[in-house]
């Protein structure tokens, strides 16, 4: 030690353990709390529903309690062949969404990667994005009739433009330095696209798909309510004719549940496929 420096004895810091607080900005909460809170909101919802049904603010036929709806749901599956309707709906969503992705993923990536492709497609895509998909229903009905083709077309139109825009934006957000790294290592245009741009954008592209799949469900119900002989929406319209409010609510419940399941599956897929991401450490 030189003369210029003087050392002081170290002092011990007091033990101050942080207190666990419920309301803390952006700080994590224990997993058990998360589960409890997540269940609690549903318990609360069903309780309010049940109370409202009991209170008689609306006639029982218009507002059945949760119990009646669950019974109706069971009957639908057990006696009315509702599973077939559900499968038809799921197939419609999956097939149209796969078609939309098959177009939107390559196009969005190219638009995000190359300004020239973006300049060509962007004015077109943006215009279509502002047209509400349901406004095409009359046209689609005349072109394709009330069959599957009309539903698939509506679902396709409903998500494709947003999907393209989101994917293009995520591709644009790939850090320039990652691209330049590949370029200065000798990467050709195609190699950079394949080995850097696509893998770097992919996790966010899957997130965009998850978000747009939810929108796809919305359009499915719209399509099936307007004209259909099968599907969850069709069942609900049949139930309306016979004032089966419990069945309508059961249908809503199933749509919600299916949305939840798909969301969970895509989330799980994301976690599994992109384990290398920081957020999963």
């Amino acid at each position: 030690m030189t003369q210029a420096l003087r050392t002081l004895p170290a002092t011990r810091a007091k033990d101050t353990r942080p207190k666990l607080r419920i309301f803390e900005f952006k700080s994590d909460i224990p997993a058990s709390w998360r589960l409890t809170l997540g269940v609690a909101v549903w318990v609360l919802f069903f309780a309010i529903w049940q109370i409202a049904a009991w209170s008689g603010v609306m006639p029982a036929i218009l507002l059945p309690g949760p119990g009646k709806v669950l019974t109706a749901l069971y009957t639908l599956f057990a006696e009315n062949g509702f599973l077939g309707d559900v499968l038809v709906s799921v197939w419609r969503v999956m097939f149209s969404f796969a078609l939309a992705c098959a177009v939107a993923v390559p196009l969005g990536i190219l638009m995000g990667a190359f300004k020239s492709v973006e300049a060509f497609f962007s004015p077109f895509v943006s215009a279509w994005r502002y047209l509400p998909a349901p406004s095409f229903i009359p046209l689609l009905l005349m072109w394709f009739g009330a069959g599957d083709a009309q539903k698939l077309a509506l679902l396709f139109i409903g998500v494709i433009w947003f999907l393209i825009t989101l994917i293009a934006d995520h591709t644009k957000a790939v850090p320039k330095d990652l691209i330049n790294t590949s370029v200065t290592l000798g990467g050709s245009r195609w190699q950079v696209l394949r080995t850097v741009v696509v893998p770097a954008a992919l996790p966010n592209i899957v997130i965009a798909m998850r978000q747009m799949l939810a929108v796809s469900w919305t359009y499915l119900v719209i399509a099936e309510i307007t004209a259909a002989d099968a599907g969850i929406g069709a069942m609900m319209m049949r139930a309306k004719r016979f004032l089966h409010v419990d069945q309508i609510m059961a249908g809503i419940l199933v749509i919600g549940l299916l949305g939840l399941i798909f969301d969970y599956l895509l989330r799980a897929l994301h976690r599994r496929a992109f384990q290398y991401l920081d957020e999963y450490s």
Partner: peptide, 10 residues
């Protein structure tokens, strides 16, 4: 070699 971290995370 860039200032930002350019290791490919995947």
């Amino acid at each position: 070699v860039f200032q930002s971290y350019t290791s490919f995370p995947w």
